[in-house]
Every structure is written in C-alpha cells, then in structure tokens.
C-alpha cells in the first residue's frame, strides 16, 4: 500500500525499530507510568518524550501540533485540580497525558501505514480459529483504502446535487441517495471479486 497517511519519511532511531517493538515499548511505558503514579516520573517521561522528537529526527513543530488539540483538556485538568485537588496531581495528570500522546504519536509518525496494518493482521491471526481468514482481512483493508476516494467523490457529487435542487435544511435527503449509490457500488464490487476469482462466495 502506498498510502503515506501521517508517516514522516526519515531515518532516526525509531525508524529502525519494528512496529511490533515500538508498540510493545509504548504499552510498557503506558502501564508503568500509570502504575507508578508519581508526578516526578510523569514529568520525567514528558521531558523524555519531548526530547525524543529531535532525537528521532522529527520536527519539533509536531509537538506543538499535538498541543493544539489537547490544551483545553490540560487547562481543565489543571484548573480543576488546582482549585479542588492538589497541584501535584495536576502536574502528574497533565504531564502523563501529554507524554503518552506524544510517544504514541512518535510511533505513528515513524511507522509506515502498511507496516502497522501488517502488524494488526499478524495480531489478528489467532482469530483464524474462529473462521476469520487472514487473506480476507487483508483484502477488506485494501478494498477500504481503494474505496475512500470513490466514496469521497460520491459525497462531493451528492452535495452538488443537493445544492442544485435547493434542498437545504434537510441534510438526510443528501445522505440517502448517497447510501443507495454505495450499495450499488458494493454490489458491483462484490460481483467483480467473484468474477475475478479473488474471493469466492463459498467460504466463511
């Protein structure tokens, strides 16, 4: 899959680790920092997370981008704890939240979408025992990536049609024809999957 998504091409330390290693490390840090529950540990992890960005070759503005979505939560926690709780809890909660979001984001920025999906498919492999075929999981993921631009184009033309007919104020009249069109699209795609011998109707 050539879809880049949020991946930032580069070659720092984090790029050399496998997706599985990064995910396991992230989980471990997450459990540790919450279990320890100390403001010092949290603040230390936050400092480490911020330093990780330049170390991994990621631009520091990525750190600021995360703050943009998170500051109202941080403000609410800080204010609430400062008034009703204790300031050390405010430090612990805010730095813990920010540190984990930054670390998780660093994993995403340094891992290709395709590699992460391969990892998910690998993790889903035990489901084969319940009749989930790994090939079909991969096929549905690829079909979805292929369908997003098609559905986006259908959405745009539905918006145009809705405006052209002057139907403003009843947005469900916009979505209904779009969905009928999606059913037809899926019908034709399913037929093509069978015709091309890629997915037979037979197995579960």
């Amino acid at each position: 899959m050539n879809t880049l998504g949020l991946y930032v091409p580069g070659e720092g330390v984090l790029y050399r680790l496998t997706a599985g290693a990064k995910l396991a490390g992230l989980l471990l840090l997450c459990v540790a920092v919450i279990a320890l529950g100390s403001p010092w540990v949290s603040a230390g992890l936050l400092a480490a997370a911020v330093l990780l960005y330049p170390a991994a070759g990621l631009p520091l503005r990525r750190v600021l981008a995360i703050l943009r979505g998170l500051w109202p939560f941080l403000l609410a926690i800080g204010f609430f704890q400062a008034v009703f709780g204790d300031p050390s809890a405010a430090v612990r909660l805010c730095s813990q939240l920010l540190a984990l979001v930054l670390l998780a984001n660093a994993v995403t920025l340094t891992t290709r979408v395709g590699e992460m999906l391969d990892l998910f498919e690998h993790l889903a492999r035990p489901l084969a025992r319940f009749g989930v075929s790994p090939d079909r999981v991969a096929l549905v993921l690829a079909l979805t990536v292929r369908s997003i631009p098609m559905v986006a184009a259908a959405w745009r033309s539905a918006v145009e049609g809705y405006r052209a007919r002057g139907l403003s104020g009843r947005p469900y009249l916009l979505v209904t024809p779009l969905i009928v069109q999606l059913f037809r699209m899926a019908e034709a795609t399913g037929e093509a999957l069978v015709a091309r011998g890629i997915d037979e109707d037979g197995h579960v």
Partner: peptide, 20 residues
Amino acid sequence: IRRRVGFVFSDAANQIIMPT
C-alpha cells in the same frame, strides 16, 4: 469456469479492487 472465462464489466471503477 471463472478461471477460464474472464469477465469485464461496463463500470471499470467498481472492478478495480486494489489501491494502486
């Protein structure tokens, strides 16, 4: 039979299955 008889539909967009 499907392996021996190929099928092309009128709407090509829907029979392209993969992202690239």
